[in-house]
């Protein structure tokens, strides 16, 4: 088997993506899930560096704009998708490598990858990405552990066919980065005084509408600056101010308390992500076997199965009606 094989399927979960980014060695950013693309959603998320759109891949779609083929390709990191399951990682890395925001620290691994592959064409970039041992093992360490080695010939479930694409502003224009296309898709200029999210919103809305009608599952996530870092920065500024002024006002106190609460909230969230990863990495096989033995001893297995069968029949009846 070639070294590019064996990429696990990743869950589209903000915790998975945030930890994945940190595993690559990048700092200062995190991923948040968006349940709407209304402006209010971004109130507590700015600055937003890019969006990741995930959907169940059905078939090839015509690009929604002109494909970049000029010398902008020397500056935009765009990689062709070479391996299916790697596309989550590929979308995240494309956003990271094109992000010039001072909050983001790429770290040695991604800096090396960028320097190494920018001289390549998009196919070679895709190959060098999927050949990176560090990136592959970081990616795979985020996946649910298989219970045991499964027969690779077993048919893959259709839920495997998810596709991730990125949207982000680069040098004043909005681009769509989709590894299945020939190049970045140019969605036009973002004016200096314009918020790029206002430019991307109608484009995403159009896509969402099509997918909603077709009952295609999709998910939207944002690459944003590390929230705790932002709150900490604001808090430090406020604390400095109160010290300089030598006085505290109720308004300042409230704001300081609010920021402390938000920092706590971020810390709890990161701890939760860690615990979820522990669960994902856990081998549940011995637990399942022992649990089944316990239930068998108390003669509860067959009744449970009966109930499940009843539910399954009801469900399939419902399905048939639809």
């Amino acid at each position: 088997m070639d070294s590019a094989g064996d990429w696990c399927l990743l869950e589209s979960d903000p915790g998975v993506f945030t930890q994945l980014i940190h595993k690559f060695g990048a700092k200062g950013v995190q991923v948040e899930e968006l349940w709407t693309i209304e402006d209010s959603m971004f109130e507590n998320l700015r600055p937003v560096h890019g969006l990741i759109f995930l959907f169940k891949y059905v078939n090839y779609e015509e690009p929604a704009g002109p494909i970049v083929s000029d010398d902008r390709l020397d500056k935009i990191f765009f990689a062709k998708q070479v391996i299916n399951n790697a596309c989550a990682t590929q979308a995240v890395i494309s956003l990271l490598l094109n992000c010039k925001h001072p909050d983001l620290e790429l770290g040695p691994e991604l800096t090396k990858l960028k320097e190494f592959s920018m001289t390549f064409d998009s196919r070679m970039r895709g190959l060098s990405l999927s050949n990176s041992q560090t990136i592959r093992s970081a990616h795979n360490s985020m996946a649910q552990q298989p219970l045991f080695e499964v027969d690779p010939k077993m048919p893959a479930k259709d839920e495997d066919a998810y596709h991730f694409i990125g949207y982000m502003p680069i040098d004043g224009r909005l681009y769509e980065l989709d590894g299945l296309q020939e190049g970045p898709i140019d969605h036009g200029a973002v004016a200096p005084e314009q918020d790029w999210l206002d430019v991307v919103r109608p484009i995403i809305m159009r896509r969402i509408n099509v997918y909603t009608e077709g009952e295609i599952h999709f998910n939207l996530m944002a690459l944003v600056s590390d929230r705790k870092m932002i709150y900490q920065r604001q808090l430090d500024t406020l604390l400095n101010e109160t010290q300089l002024l030598g006085m505290e006002t109720d308004a300042l106190d409230t704001e300081i308390a609010r920021l402390r609460m938000l920092i706590d909230y971020e810390e709890i969230k990161m701890a939760k992500y860690k615990q979820e990863l522990v669960r994902r990495r856990h081998n549940y096989m011995p637990f399942i076997i022992n649990l089944l033995q316990i239930l068998a001893k108390e003669k509860k297995l067959m009744p449970l199965l009966e109930k499940a069968k009843e539910r399954a029949t009801k469900r399939s009846h419902k399905k048939m009606k639809v």
Partner: peptide
């Protein structure tokens, strides 16, 4: 045979209390 969603079978309250 039936296609059993074992995950939801084993999250039943009876299983939780037994376990």
């Amino acid at each position: 045979a039936v296609n059993v969603d074992l995950g939801s079978v084993l999250s039943a309250s009876d299983v939780v209390s037994t376990a």
